[in-house]
């Protein structure tokens, strides 16, 4: 099977500082992959580059072999923090925005997700808790029939119940061919559903491994991840 996402020799600098260096990454169709790394390791930057909104990088980023920003955005569903909307915006309005502007937005799928997450569309953004907002973001992100879903820290600062809901919805609603990249700085909560892990360390991809392979070596994913970051401290 050909690669869904290909990144070659990607380097990104900002303010004279190297943020990402010599990134090479290939992801196949139909996988759930974690993007792990400390806070500030460059996970969000990498996702934003893939999604086509971070500029001025060197190297190649392609989805299904296509590099153009507009074409990439068409098949990528990025978990937008909804920062572009005013806090007084009603959820129903954001749904309309998605429905009108994304061709692949599936209203029925959203209705199902909305029911599953118990989202009230009459609420305003400012009236939502962190967990509820994150659920809304996930529901919107998944309602697009994309090929690659980029979930940027969907579990940060939310309670266990919301987390469970989000994890179940990922498993339930992921299309077979679609690939999901989830960034997080903890892994044990999501380890059981992962196909692969990608660890960002020292501004580059430190390793990219299949989770079952790690377990075959009698290591838990968490141990594996902690060992990588432990090395530097010694």
């Amino acid at each position: 099977m050909s690669n869904l996402l290909e990144i070659e020799n990607l380097t990104y600098r900002k303010n004279l500082k190297v943020i990402l260096k010599d990134i090479n990454l290939n992801l196949k169709h139909g996988k759930i992959v974690a993007l792990l790394g400390e806070n500030g390791a460059g996970k969000t930057t990498l996702m934003r580059i893939i999604a086509g909104i971070n500029k001025n990088f060197r190297g190649m980023v392609a989805i299904d072999g296509v590099q153009s920003v507009a074409d990439r955005k068409r098949v990528i569903s990025f978990s937008d923090s909804l920062s572009g909307f005013k806090e007084s915006t009603k959820v129903a309005k954001i749904i309309n925005f998605y429905e009108y502007l994304y061709d692949d937005f599936d209203k029925n799928k959203f209705k199902q997700l909305q029911k599953f997450m118990r989202l009230n569309e009459n609420l305003r953004l400012s009236e939502m808790s962190k967990g509820m907002r994150e659920k809304l973001i996930i529901a919107l992100t998944f309602s697009r029939q994309a090929e690659l879903y980029l979930l940027d820290e969907p579990f940060s600062g939310i309670d266990a119940m919301a987390r469970k809901k989000i994890i179940s919805s990922i498993i339930l609603w992921k299309a077979d061919e679609a690939t999901i990249l989830i960034s997080d700085h903890f892994v044990n909560e999501i380890a059981s559903m992962l196909d692969e892990v990608v660890v960002v360390k020292d501004k580059t991809i430190y390793c990219h491994k299949s989770t079952e392979e790690i377990r075959e070596n009698n290591q838990s994913i968490e141990e594996f991840y902690e060992n990588i970051y432990g090395e530097g401290d010694e």
Partner: peptide, 9 residues
């Protein structure tokens, strides 16, 4: 998969 919270694959 949902019951066990694991990947379909």
């Amino acid at each position: 998969a949902v019951q066990l919270t694991v990947n379909v694959n």
